[in-house]
Design a protein around this nucleic acid. Structure first.
Length: 727
RNA sequence: GCGCGGUUAGCUCAGUUGGUAGAGCACCUCAUUUACACUGAGGGGGUCGCAGGUUCGAGCCCUGCACCGCGCACCA
């Protein structure tokens, strides 16, 4: 007797939450609980550690795509008999979360974090993060993610904190982490340092001024930032250029916009003799390249004229206290009135802005913590961190999909400088270093004696993210999980965090464990709206995956995200596309209804072989599809597998085979009827299995209504993927 | 400046080793209660960015160019 439910259209709303609960209660998300007959701990294993969503808000379409792709891989492998672990978690996202809470507090209470104090402020951030965490994890469930919640991790929880402190200590002892007074990227808006990768370049119109420091100064200089020239200590020229006769001289400028300057002329091959005036005014404290040149020629690197608030210091004489933009105008005015300005040109230049705050980055010398990427490591055969990152991909231990990202990855490593890891924010892993006068202590715990003061700074959030593949599995403890599931199989994430995250995970893992963190990197593109625009609040063109689930069902949203989505390429999604796959879920529902209504007396006979000629041919055609689809699954061509299955179920099975079956079941001989019923019932069985990784809810619901399993291991979730070695 | 990717139907995109151009959506015609109207049958529509080359044969391989997007560097 067919279930009455089939008489109505499929209703994802009434189904999905119930089915997810059923799966979760089965315990099968946890690899330790998988049925032992099929899955044993010595069998083949497959693991993915989920890229942790930031606890800054809600799930967006990019998360939905990530969760769908990973769930497809996990469900597919689980059905293939692998003991699968998909480990979920969330990210404290230091700067992002702190900035969000600071903004909220300022909006409602007009208070800054300093008004509240460190302790109270952190309490507020924690509360926000907790709430955000709860929202996000419930939304991950809505997406149908079959991840093991019993192993859930947070980048800032107790275990991950220990991993961070342990790693810091290890790297410090190996001389890979050092404290240095160096020029860094300072974000005046966020009041913190940021790494090179957190800079976003913006093209802007600017003016290039050509001037002389004084009437009798022999060499003209060009600059876009006249206000920094108050900090100049030298001029660099090419050793073979037209100014070479001045090399070695020190020229005194008695008054430059109110301050005296002492300018030494140095020869350096970094200077392009053909560009500008062929000479560079050197401001070591406010320019990266000038700092390096100053270092080579032992020039003064103490003259700081701009402070942390992007205002002029008292070294700027009469300009003290002015914002850099105001000071720029004043200096230009002074140059003009003194007859020193020779040229003014419009140019376009890239200015550096901070990714999170949008503030204009001010290069400043500061005492900060760094990771040395060029230091030979004894325990790793004298290789540097750069070497380790390079070799992981070059050797083929890690495959990046699509493979052209491998080139981008190598290119990034070539240009990599030491990584500044200290941040002047409060939310995050506090640097595990304590000071007492001149003494310094670093360790996983604070020193016992009194009088030690911990470094006030926190670590770049990507430091803890870099440990994610193994800190989640219990490192530094030698756990069973680490032994069984690391290196993980696949890391699936958006290409925009290739450097931020993927490269850092490779760095940390190769250094600490000597292995790669994962073998395959699957990079997905950005999800855009129907017209290819980025989804944004200001455009109001965003599609919320939770709304999609409510309106069309999660299955429809998942299918729409997968079909036509190739790795590394951005994809557009519209409600029209999602609607199409909602219809598909209903189609499948009615396919099941038709097959089950016409085979009420029939059971699925595993070894039935008495097929008619036509049905034999249909079985063979069906087999070709599943062999093909399985190949696609193995090659990560999910977009193709999904489309083929969709097409087979709807346009081959439903439109052709079911239609033809009506006549056979009406007028055929007993043998023809029997053969056809077996064909239908076997086809439905295989279609449900093969579509389950893509649209898990509707397939499981049909399976449950049809098979009514009495034990948990009768669930479709742990059923076998259609065999490819037999029809 | 160096590098990477893209350019295929009105729109969004596939096209796995070179062998007669595909899907979804949209559009047009027909069917009108059928397992399913969240439906079915059929149809129109593309000199595959441009110009050369290799080949019996090129959307696919090679060279050059154009436009769009992206990464990195420079940014005196």
């Amino acid at each position: 007797m067919i279930n009455d439910k089939f008489l109505k259209p499929y209703n994802p709303h009434d189904t999905e939450e119930r089915i997810y609960k059923l799966w979760e209660e089965s315990g099968f998300f946890n690899p330790d609980n998988l049925p032992t007959e099929r899955y044993t701990l010595n069998a083949k294993r497959f693991s993915i550690v989920m890229p942790p969503p930031n606890v800054t808000g809600v799930l967006h379409m990019g998360h939905a795509l990530m969760l769908t792709l990973e769930d497809i891989m996990i469900r597919y492998k689980r059905m293939c008999g692998f003991t699968t672990l998909w480990l979920p978690g969330t990210d404290h996202a230091a700067i992002a979360t702190q900035a969000k809470v600071e903004k909220d507090i300022y909006k409602t209470e007009k208070k800054s974090r300093h008004d509240l104090g460190r302790e109270e402020f952190l309490k507020r951030v924690k509360a926000f993060a907790q709430q955000s965490h709860d929202t996000i994890t419930s939304q991950v469930r809505v997406m149908g993610a079959s991840c093991d919640w019993s192993r859930e991790a947070y980048t800032l929880d107790e275990k991950r904190s220990l991993a961070v402190r342990t790693m810091f200590k290890m790297m410090y002892d190996d001389g890979l982490i050092y404290r240095g007074h160096r020029i860094v990227n300072w974000d005046p808006k966020g009041q913190t340092t940021i790494s090179d990768d957190e800079i976003v370049y913006e093209e802007r119109k600017a003016k290039l001024y050509t001037f002389r420091y004084s009437k009798d100064f022999p060499i003209p200089i060009a600059t876009t930032r006249p206000e920094t020239k108050l900090g100049d200590v030298g001029v660099a020229v090419h050793p073979d250029g037209k100014w070479k006769s001045y090399i070695g001289q020190t020229l005194e400028v008695t008054n430059f916009a109110g301050v005296p300057l002492s300018i030494r002329i140095v020869g350096d091959t970094d200077v392009d003799p053909e560009f500008g005036t062929g000479a560079v005014g050197l401001t070591p404290t406010h320019s990266f390249t000038d700092w390096e040149i100053a270092e080579r020629h032992k020039l003064n690197k103490e003259l700081v004229v701009i402070n942390e608030y992007a205002k002029m210091t008292d070294k700027a004489g009469p300009l003290v206290g002015l914002k850099v933009t105001e000071a720029r105008e004043k200096v230009v005015e002074w140059l003009n009135s003194s007859g020193l300005l020779e040229k003014e040109e419009e140019i376009t230049q890239n200015i550096s802005t901070a990714e999170r705050t949008g503030g204009i980055v001010e290069p400043l010398p500061k005492l900060q913590w760094f990771i040395d990427v060029n230091k030979p490591i004894k325990a790793r055969e004298g290789k540097t961190l750069k070497d380790l990152m390079r070799e992981a991909v070059k050797s083929g231990d890690i495959k990046i999909l699509p493979d052209h990202f491998e080139k981008i990855y190598f290119h990034w490593i070539e240009n990599l400088r030491d990584w500044c890891i200290s941040r002047q924010i409060w939310y995050g892993h506090r640097i595990p270093v304590w000071y007492k006068g001149e003494e310094l202590f670093t360790g996983t715990e604070a020193p016992k004696e009194v009088g030690w003061e911990q470094d006030p700074d926190t670590l770049d959030t990507w430091f803890s993210s870099g440990l994610w593949s193994f800190s989640t599995l219990g490192w530094p403890e030698k756990t069973k999980d680490l032994e069984l599931y690391h290196p993980t199989d696949v890391l699936e994430t958006g290409y925009e965090i290739l450097f931020f995250w993927i490269a850092r995970m490779v760095l940390m893992t190769k250094y600490a464990l000597g292995t790669v963190p994962f073998h395959t990197v699957y990079l997905h593109g950005t999800v855009r709206d129907g017209q290819g625009r980025k989804m944004s609040k200001s455009l109001g063109n965003g599609i919320d995956p939770i709304d999609v689930a409510k309106k069309f069902g999660t299955d429809a949203g998942r299918m729409a995200l997968i079909v036509g989505n190739t790795p590394g390429t951005d994809m557009n999604i519209s409600e029209d596309k999602i609607r199409g796959y909602k219809n598909f879920a209903n189609k499948l529902w009615n396919i099941a209804r038709f097959v089950l209504e016409n085979t009420t007396e029939e059971t699925l006979e595993e070894d039935f072989s008495n097929y008619t000629e036509i049905d034999t041919k249909l079985r063979e055609e069906r087999h070709v599809i599943f062999v093909d689809v399985t190949k696609d699954m193995e090659a990560y061509r999910f977009y193709m597998a999904a489309e083929k299955l969709y097409h087979y179920a709807w346009h081959t099975f439903a439109d052709k085979i079911l239609e033809e079956s009506k006549a056979i079941l009406e007028n055929g001989s007993a043998m023809e009827k029997k053969s056809r019923r077996q064909l239908l019932i076997h086809s439905l069985d295989k279609i449900l299995r093969s579509l389950h990784p893509f649209i898990p809810f509707v397939t499981e619901e049909i399976w449950q209504l049809w098979k009514q399993p009495t034990t948990l291991d009768g669930m479709l979730m742990v059923a076998e993927w259609p065999a490819t070695d037999s029809l």
